[in-house]
């Protein structure tokens, strides 16, 4: 069918493209340069890989990284950026975080004459934002969900992090797609994913909802804007012996991709990003800029891939996760 074919084509294109970016080694050296890296947090697979991608690339190119982890706290990240500006690095790369909170501080970075690059943060002050296409991710995941459940049924949605712009985009895309499927209903109230203890908390809440809707067919699927709640939800569904309920998430941590690969697992799809490549690409862009290339596009989109039961084995290999 054309839908599946399109996804497969996308996959092939995605990894072909990824391969060329990953191995193109025309990146100028960063010798003697100090690169400020400020990230909102590193406790999630995506955050950590994107962060490591930056750190490793800075080291590979001979630069020095000043790396700062905000511990998922806006105030702390802002204090770190404020001090970072005073340290006057050659370039600052900012990764994820709450858009509106960051903007005035990102402006201060530019006002101080420091070139600013961002990872997954849309900002008018950023020279280049390296990111996944979250609109596409949200749309593809929602379409896959709608297609899997044949356009009909009730779904549970975790919506605890609407304050994070990329999560909001994915959620909004879900809503947009669901407009075309009037027979799919989001069960209210929506659930709240939390940090810390995300997995057990999601497990417990989904178990609650499965006992509230005890019949086969009452709940068709569980959606979350990242994949840690998906881990808890999937296990709750297995424990409650309700394998007809499917789960969907974003990011593609290796264990979640493995769950999707398992034909018996309720985990039906995860939109896998390439965070390590995203981080690496951001540093490469910064290095090119410092070497005098001031014609960078404002956005570099690193392809993502929707991992489903059909393509999980291939995707695992292509994502470099196969053991």
């Amino acid at each position: 069918m054309s839908f599946k074919a399109r996804i497969l084509a996308g996959l092939v294109f995605a990894f072909g493209f990824a391969a060329t970016t990953a191995y193109a080694d025309d990146v100028p050296s960063l010798k003697g340069k100090r690169i400020g890296i400020t990230v909102i947090g590193t406790e999630h697979y995506w955050d950590l890989k994107a962060y490591q991608g930056q750190m490793d690339e800075v080291k590979r190119l001979g630069g020095t990284a000043i790396a700062l982890d905000g511990g998922r706290n806006d105030s702390r990240q802002i204090s770190q950026i404020q001090t970072l500006i005073a340290q006057k690095p050659d370039v600052i790369i900012e990764q994820l975080g709450n858009g509106p909170v960051l903007q005035p501080w990102l402006k201060k970075v530019r006002d101080a004459g420091i070139p600013l690059f961002t990872v997954d943060t849309i900002s008018p002050h950023s020279i280049n934002d390296t990111t996944s296409d979250n609109f596409g991710i949200g749309e593809k995941l929602a379409l896959q969900l709608a297609s899997d459940i044949h356009g009909k049924g009730n779904i549970l949605v975790f919506n605890g992090f609407y304050s994070v712009p990329v999560c909001a985009i994915r959620y909004d895309e879900l809503k947009l797609v669901l407009k075309a499927f009037p027979d799919i209903k989001i069960i209210t109230p929506e659930l709240r994913d939390v940090i810390p203890n995300t997995v057990q908390n999601a497990y417990s809440q989904v178990t609650d909802m499965l006992s509230k809707y005890p019949n086969k067919g009452d709940i068709a699927a569980v959606w979350s804007a990242w994949d840690v709640p998906q881990v808890g939800a999937t296990q709750a569904i297995v424990a409650a012996k309700r394998p007809e309920v499917r789960t969907y998430g974003v990011d593609g941590s290796p264990d979640v991709v493995k769950m999707v690969k398992d034909p018996a697992s309720p985990a039906s799809a995860v939109a896998a990003q390439q965070p390590y490549l995203i981080g690496k690409t951001a540093v490469d862009n910064a290095a090119r800029y410092l070497a005098g290339n001031h014609d960078l596009p404002p956005y570099t989109f690193v392809p993502s891939v929707l991992v489903t039961k059909e393509n999980a084995a291939e995707a695992e290999k292509a994502l470099g996760q196969a053991s």
Partner: peptide, 16 residues
């Protein structure tokens, strides 16, 4: 003071 620093209100203040 915090609202001025964060340009408004942002979840997670309780962490302090």
């Amino acid at each position: 003071v915090q609202a001025a620093r964060l340009s408004g209100s942002s979840p997670g203040s309780g962490d302090i």
